[in-house]
């Protein structure tokens, strides 16, 4: 898990994905091959807007072991402004979350490998009041 996480740090710590310059489709997580243009794909890395809106969400009560302290937490599909759709956590109260809600990125901890393991940080979202 450690090298596997490290390899993607850049893409987790901020919303760095990719864009196919042939068809202008944006991808997050990044792809190095565009499924639409295939061999004509021309992939470039791109940092996406840290703002967007909630397309769908769920409040998760039955959680994996590493998330038990966060129970319940919110998972959402978020459509980034001028960007792709991303699966992420939204940090807010259960009563606050709704589809269409504006959200912005936040740097947060996802989980840790126990008390003596490494800490997995990444991008989550919080309500965007502005």
């Amino acid at each position: 898990m450690l090298p596997r996480f490290w390899r993607k740090i850049k893409y987790r710590y901020d919303i760095v994905g990719s864009v196919c310059e042939t068809c202008n489709t944006k991808y997050y997580p990044p792809r190095n091959f565009c499924p639409i243009c295939r061999r004509r794909s021309s992939i470039k890395e791109e940092m996406f807007e840290g703002k967007g809106k909630v397309l769908s969400y769920t409040v998760v009560h039955d959680t994996p072991e590493e998330y038990k302290l966060e129970k319940p937490y919110i998972i959402a599909l978020i459509e980034l402004d001028n960007g792709p759709v991303i699966t992420s956590q939204v940090v807010c109260s259960e009563n606050e979350i709704r589809t269409g809600m504006r959200v912005k990125k936040a740097f947060r901890k996802y989980f840790e490998d126990g008390e003596d393991g490494i800490i997995y940080y990444g991008t989550k979202f919080v309500p965007d009041e502005d």
Binding site: R4, P29, I75, T87, Q89, G122, K124
Partner: peptide, 9 residues
């Protein structure tokens, strides 16, 4: 890596 990691069961 991109669903399970963030807690999307």
């Amino acid at each position: 890596e991109w669903e399970g990691f963030v807690g999307a069961t």
